[in-house]
């Protein structure tokens, strides 16, 4: 509990992380609870953006510069950590391909059923099942 309170005291200084986690939570709940397929895909991208923001923010250190050697300065203290940026890039590639797959599935579902509402799709499915049984 005490640890939690200490974390909360640091909140004003770590507002980027707070924003990132809030974005993540918004995206996750959109992905889980929105009843429209397109909104689910948007939620997926918001969620990934939250994670990437958190990761990019962890790699940035105030007052330092990009890790490209200029003027022969090789001391570590002058540069930010480049690994999170690399991870974010990889993550973006993954996120783009997953989004593409989701969108293509969404398009095919719309072509087949003319709707993107999950509830309507489920109603259709249960109707089929009843038909199968009879």
């Amino acid at each position: 509990m005490q640890e939690l309170l200490n974390h909360l005291n640091n909140l004003p200084f770590n507002y980027e992380e707070a924003v990132a986690v809030i974005l993540f939570a918004i995206g996750l709940s959109m992905l889980l609870f929105c009843r429209n397929l397109l909104k689910k895909v948007i939620g997926l991208d918001v969620m990934d953006a939250g994670i990437f923001l958190l990761l990019a923010d962890r790699g940035y250190i105030t007052g330092r510069t990009v890790p490209i050697i200029v003027d022969g300065v090789t001391e570590m203290e002058y540069y930010i950590n480049p690994i999170p940026a690399g991870l974010v890039l990889t993550g973006i590639v993954v996120s783009v391909s997953v989004t593409a797959l989701m969108l293509s599935l969404t398009v095919r579902i719309y072509k087949t059923y003319r709707t993107l509402e999950i509830d309507k799709l489920y109603i259709m499915m249960t109707n089929w099942r009843k038909g199968e049984r009879e």
Binding site: M47, L54, L121
Partner: peptide, 24 residues
Amino acid sequence: GGRVLIASVRYMIFALVGSGLFLM
């Protein structure tokens, strides 16, 4: 076929929730 499409979208949604949490 329609029902396989719906099954794959459900599969994807839960898989993506899982990998989002894992990445976090």
